[in-house]
C-alpha cells in the first residue's frame, strides 16, 4: 500500500465529506430539519457535541479510503465512485428504516438519500483520482 497517497486521499476525502455535509445537511436541508425540531439537539448542546460529528466524519473518510485502496488497488475515479455509491446504498437502507421508526418527513428522507449518494460517490471519485497503487494491479471492481 502506498501510505503517502493513502494519507493524501484520506485528507481530501475528509475535507470533501465535511464541507459537503455542512453545506448539504447543515445549510441546504436546514429548513427541512427545522420542521421536526424535537428531533435535534438545541444549538448550544450541538456545539458541545460537535467533536463527535468531526470524529464520525474522520472515521467515514478513513474507512472509505481503506475500502477503495484495498479493493480497487488500481484506483481510478470511476471504479472508486462505483464502490462509493454501493456503500451509500447501505446508508440508504438505513435511511428507509429511520423513516419508519423516527418522525422525519419524506422531504428529509429524500434529502438524506440524495446527499448520501452524492457524498459517497464524489468522495470515492476523489479517493480514486488521488490513490493509485505504486504497483500496477488490476482493479477488482469492474468499471461501471
Amino acid at each position: 500500500m502506498d501510505w503517502k497517497k493513502f494519507f493524501i486521499a484520506f485528507v481530501a476525502a475528509f475535507g470533501f465529506i465535511f464541507v459537503f455535509g455542512f453545506l448539504w445537511y447543515g445549510k441546504l436541508m436546514h429548513g427541512a430539519h427545522s420542521e421536526v425540531p424535537a428531533l435535534w439537539r438545541p444549538e448550544a448542546e450541538f456545539g458541545n457535541h460537535f467533536s463527535w460529528l468531526v470524529f464520525g466524519h474522520i472515521v467515514i473518510a478513513f474507512f472509505l479510503t481503506l475500502l477503495c485502496s484495498k479493493f480497487v488497488p488500481a484506483g481510478g475515479p470511476g471504479p472508486c465512485a462505483h464502490l462509493g455509491i454501493l456503500v451509500a446504498l447501505v446508508y440508504v437502507g438505513n435511511d428507509f428504516i429511520t423513516y419508519a421508526v423516527q418522525p422525519i418527513t419524506m422531504k428529509i428522507l429524500c434529502g438524506w438519500i440524495v446527499g448520501n449518494l452524492i457524498m459517497f460517490g464524489v468522495a470515492g471519485a476523489i479517493i480514486g483520482t488521488i490513490y493509485k497503487s505504486s504497483t500496477p494491479a488490476a482493479s477488482q471492481i469492474p468499471n461501471s
Binding site: L39, R41, E45, F46, L53, G56, F63, Y91
Partner: peptide, 19 residues
C-alpha cells in the same frame, strides 16, 4: 466489520445532532 465501522461513524454524527 468495515461497513459496520462506517455505520458507527454515522451514529457518531447522529449522536452529535440528536439527543
Amino acid at each position: 466489520i468495515m461497513l459496520e465501522i462506517l455505520a458507527v461513524s454515522a451514529r457518531c454524527a447522529i449522536y452529535a445532532t440528536q439527543p
